[in-house]
Write a protein that binds this DNA or RNA. Sequence first.
DNA 1: CGGACCATTGAACTATCTCAACTTCAGTGG
DNA 2: CCACTGAAGTTGAGATAGTTCAATGGTCCG
Lengths: 227, 227
Amino acid sequence: MFTRITTRQTPRSDSLRDFGLSSGSTPIIGLGEFTYRKGREIYGEKEAAEYVYQVKRGAVRSYKLLSDGRRQIGAFHLDGDIFGLENGETHRFTAEAVVKTTVRVMRRASLEVAADSDVVVWRNLLGLTTDNLQHAENHMLLLGRKTSLERVAAFLLEMDGRLSAAGVISLPMSRRDIADYLGLTLETVSRAVSQLHKAGILDFMGNTQREIVILDRQSLALLDLQN
Amino acid sequence: MFTRITTRQTPRSDSLRDFGLSSGSTPIIGLGEFTYRKGREIYGEKEAAEYVYQVKRGAVRSYKLLSDGRRQIGAFHLDGDIFGLENGETHRFTAEAVVKTTVRVMRRASLEVAADSDVVVWRNLLGLTTDNLQHAENHMLLLGRKTSLERVAAFLLEMDGRLSAAGVISLPMSRRDIADYLGLTLETVSRAVSQLHKAGILDFMGNTQREIVILDRQSLALLDLQN
DNA sequence: CGGACCATTGAACTATCTCAACTTCAGTGG
DNA sequence: CCACTGAAGTTGAGATAGTTCAATGGTCCG
């Protein structure tokens, strides 16, 4: 899977510091960058977790499959996000590029060496893991107890916070991806988005339905019941 | 909330080592034990996270509420489990005693002091957090994509692994708790259990329906689709 | 220009929920 | 010890949110 990793001299900038994990006194050399085409697998569930990744440009989906093909996307990783960081030996999700995606890669082993000599690294690793945990905890509430409209509203608000530029949310993922993230079908997602559109809460831009403008952020927040 | 904590001389055994987090070279003194009656709140969501807990005897539920009362239980904490460990300043769940429960308590601040002088503490904190994350990730798959029968089968297998003694699972929690953990209603949980009973996969012991014997572990595992 | 998605929408279906009745169990106080 | 009471569990019948199946149109891309 990693046979295509570039072998050129790794620039010094591809270091642990770039991941924002070390204190800077002991930068660790990374392996450089790598680009995946749309739909390509970055790593598979249960594969050995040899590398850690950071999205430089693009979007990644992390998911689990049931044996009959049902899929649950646990997270989308967007610009700047670190993913593939495991404490155990193997990956717990499959990661795929949602669109053409460039990632920074570093060896997990380097991280471990760095951690032993730098408490800041530990702190940052724990912080990252806690952020992931917090996201998962909120997502459990969404998956277990929210209605389809509430889920879609929550999704749009999440994406609004994470990737809206100049007021426009440019979704890299398909309705099917969104559905598998929200525990719904793609039709239900589509109907909910249409409903929000008809209600005047959002509008579309461009000629695709992936560019969304939120017109009424407050109504969306009301739909996604606070806890 | 902690006004009732015992003020007697804290025995040396109530130390960080008892939580299994330190390397043993720098044990940290805990605050001792505390017992909560059935249904009592141990801490509330968004409260300052001043203490960390370990279940000595009993069972605890951690949950989030939506404003209209819908509840999602994120985890049950059973004998030996550590809970209430936060990285941020506040608790992200409400924790309540499911039955009469005795916990060990230690100050969060003590942990932080210990961590700075002992990398093993960091490693253990990260390990704990990772375990929680892994559980949440698996639970997202369950909540997003599994059928009611699959959820109940998965639940019984989880509890079989965590609290079965002499082949009998003695569930401390009600059908409603189970439902709120699995993202179902209590009636649906009850029907699924009945269905498993009629199918000869499990049986009841004693005169309550909370003591369950799994007769056919393999059928249960088949029902809870592997991924 | 043709084919492969991708998204939307409608109509029928179904798993789960809701509402309600009934039973059993645990605890309380006479 | 028994009669009460309230909580917990089961089961049935009907309602419904979301799914499934199917048809249509748009967009991208060679």
